[in-house]
C-alpha cells in the first residue's frame, strides 16, 4: 500500500532523513518509535508532501511519485490517498464539529451537501461524537477534539491514515478515549502509520514496529521481536529507558 524508496530530506544543510525504505501492506498497522529529533514526524509529513522529500520515491496505492519530478497532480493524488491526524489536532476553529468533517467531502470530493452531512454524521457516530455536531472546537476537550481530527481524516476514506503523536498533547486522563478510538479504526481494517511514544499501545495495536534513530530506520519487526528481542543496541537502550519512564 505504501512504499518508500530511499527517501531523503534535508532542511538547509541538515540531513534529517537519510535514505528511508519502508513497505506497508494493505490493512497493516505500523508504529514508528524513536527518540525526539530522529525524523519521525518529517518521515510522516514527507509521505503526503507536507514536507517535500529532497529525493526518493513515495508510492501509495500504485501511484509512484519521484520527489525530484513530483508534479502538482502527484501531490494532489498523494494527499487524496492519505489522511493525517496531528498532535495539535489542527481542527478548523471557525467550523463546527460537523463542518470540520464535512468540508473535505463537500469541497474536495464535491459530494452533495445532504449526502456529505449524512456520511459525516455516521463517521462522528463511530468516534462517539454524534451528540456534539454543532459545537466549535473551542468548546470541546482535547480528547474530543482529537476524535474529531480522526473523523475528519476518516471522512475522505483515504487508503492510508497517518498519525503523528495523536495523544501527546492530551491530559493523561484523556489519552485512553483517543487510543480506544484509534484501536477501533485499526480494527476496521484501515492501513495505518502511527508515530507514538505510547509504547504499550504501539505494542498492542501494531502488526509491525519500526525503530528510527538519526534519520534512519535502525530496526523493524513484529512487536514481539522488537520489544522482547531487540537486536540493535540502540533499540535496547531506547526501550529500557522509555520503560523506566513509564
Amino acid at each position: 500500500m505504501i512504499k518508500l524508496e530511499n527517501v531523503h530530506k534535508y532542511f538547509e544543510r541538515q540531513h534529517v532523513l537519510k535514505g528511508i525504505d519502508l513497505n506497508v501492506q494493505k490493512g497493516e498497522v505500523v508504529s514508528i518509535l524513536g527518540p525526539s529529533g530522529s525524523g519521525k514526524s518529517t518521515l510522516l509529513r514527507c509521505i503526503n508532501f507536507l514536507e517535500e522529500p529532497t529525493r526518493g520515491i513515495v508510492e501509495i496505492g500504485g501511484r509512484r511519485v519521484d520527489a525530484q519530478s513530483a508534479k502538482k497532480a502527484d501531490i494532489v493524488s498523494l494527499r487524496n490517498s492519505t489522511g493525517m491526524v496531528f498532535q495539535q489536532y489542527n481542527l478548523f476553529k471557525n467550523f463546527t464539529v460537523l463542518q470540520n468533517v464535512m468540508i473535505g467531502l463537500t469541497s474536495v470530493k464535491r459530494i452533495h451537501k445532504a449526502e456529505a452531512k449524512k456520511q459525516s454524521i455516521e463517521i462522528l457516530e463511530r468516534v462517539g461524537l454524534a451528540d456534539r455536531l454543532d459545537h466549535y472546537p473551542a468548546q470541546l476537550s482535547g480528547g474530543q477534539q482529537q476524535r474529531v481530527g480522526i473523523a475528519r481524516a476518516l471522512a475522505l476514506e483515504p487508503e492510508v491514515l497517518l498519525f503523528d503523536e495523536p495523544t501527546s498533547s492530551l491530559d493523561p486522563e484523556l489519552v485512553g478515549e483517543v487510543l480506544a478510538t484509534i484501536r477501533k479504526v485499526a480494527d476496521e481494517g484501515n492501513t495505518m502509520l502511527i508515530v507514538t511514544h505510547e509504547l504499550q499501545f504501539a505494542r498492542a495495536i501494531s502488526d509491525r514496529v519500526v525503530f528510527m534513530e538519526d534519520g534512519k530506520i535502525v530496526e523493524e519487526g513484529t512487536p514481539e521481536q522488537l520489544f522482547n528481542h531487540p537486536k540493535v543496541e540502540r533499540t535496547k537502550q531506547f526501550l529500557s529507558r522509555a520503560n523506566r519512564n513509564d
Partner: peptide
C-alpha cells in the same frame, strides 16, 4: 496547523484561504 490540515485533506490553496 490549520494550513497544514487543509492541505492534508486536499483542499486547494484558494479553498483553504477562503473557507478557513
Amino acid at each position: 496547523g490549520q494550513f497544514e490540515a487543509s492541505k492534508s485533506i486536499g483542499m486547494t490553496p484558494a479553498q483553504m484561504m477562503l473557507k478557513v
